[in-house]
Write a protein that binds this DNA or RNA. Structure first.
Lengths: 214, 214
DNA sequence: TCAAAAGTGTTCAGGGTACACCCATGG
DNA sequence: CCATGGGTGTACCCTGAACACTTTTGA
């Protein structure tokens, strides 16, 4: 039989860096921390891993609780395990980065949890090492968006190229050339135009595009 | 005060994918697992995190025990937390990838621990999810070697360009063009030639190079 | 008719890749 | 003198970046 019993055990939490995109701004979902230490401070959404629960399962459970969403896109970032990272007790946190279509999340859930979408730029101080988690997640997102279809996770099903470009610009933190951008997009197999026209954003109307995931 | 006490706690281990390079082959350090479950199976080196010990500190302690080396290059890869990954008890493992100069490690330590360097290509089955860990580490190493000075961590202080090229080839799993490779190296600020000549590898003698880390 | 957003090509520089021969030396 | 590994340059292609004007239409 096993004999691990002489080794210490730890609380293990999952924290989620949930990105959304709204009105031209990249947002991250936070809430007011509901217990000490750090009661009332701004915090990423997270929770403790349960017995008999995989890390990713825990992340999905927590996301469901806070946003009402199943089937979100998520990816593990790293484990944060500094002894003093949580001033209350030793907690080792596994961090996931999560992309959701902000229009789809359940507003009720968010209100229930005192949740709030904050701009990723000029983010206020969050509790513990959560700012560091966001920083790292944002960096990974910046790398992923260039050559994977992750942008589709942050947008509604149909979107204009201008919307997509603005999303890229807000993630990369720089402006990009319209013609170069549109050529690059036209070469991606996973984005294609539809017959639909968006008449809200301009007088002329803009072609709506969509991602095709297999 | 905190009130995490109603949440479960977990054993947390650190596993290290220790890469070395010897005689043209990329190697990974393994040993015979000293306890059940999996007693005697091939395993990455690892151990349990202690109270009051950071994750990285734990990794360094374990590396010191197994190789006698301080100050190695390491980087966190990911957390592995599947419920059934360790058939004995629930253990969440944080994995580090580690690069060492194989000539420097303490042979005594390795013998003491029944350790063994295995070729990364054609790796036999390791216990639990350790093959998956190696796979992932190797992938990251392949990305890092192209534009960071990590190769220097795997080589002795002085090396010939042919040695360096063979190292790249074994990590990338493909052959590279000698002239292109040497031009690329000459453009890296962190590699430079010395006045030393290696006379062992050829009759003509080859210039020895070194990495300059800040 | 005009303001506002959509849409569209070409040029240039730099990086990556393919490719073959002479050099120095020890045995 | 020859086998062995060391060392070197050029041509091409493709990708990424810079850059400005016309089109459509609702108000």
């Amino acid at each position: 039989m096993t004999s691990y019993s002489s080794y210490p055990q730890f609380f293990v939490s999952v924290d989620c860096v949930v990105f959304g995109y709204h009105e031209g701004k990249l947002k991250v979902l936070t809430h007011q921390r509901p217990y000490e230490p750090g009661l009332g401070e701004k915090s990423l959404i997270g929770g403790f891993v349960q017995k008999e629960e995989n890390l990713e399962t825990a992340a999905r459970r927590i996301l469901k609780e806070f946003t009402g969403l199943d089937n979100v896109y998520l990816q593990q970032l790293a484990a944060f395990g500094e002894v003093e990272r949580d001033p209350g007790e030793r907690v080792i946190s596994v961090v996931y980065y999560v992309l959701i279509d902000i229009a789809k999340y359940d507003e009720q859930q968010v209100i229930l949890h005192n949740a709030e979408w904050l701009n990723v730029d000029n983010l206020p101080t969050l509790c513990f090492d959560h700012n560091e988690m966001v920083e790292k997640a944002r960096q990974v997102l910046g790398e992923d968006i260039k050559d994977t279809p992750v942008a589709g996770k942050l947008l509604p099903r149909y979107f204009t190229l201008t919307q997509l470009q603005m999303l890229h610009e807000s993630i990369l933190g720089m402006s990009v050339d319209k013609r170069n951008f549109r050529r690059a997009i036209s070469e991606k197999a996973y984005i294609h135009s539809t017959n639909l026209i968006d008449k809200d954003s301009s007088r002329r109307g803009a072609t709506l595009y969509e991602f095709s995931f297999e």
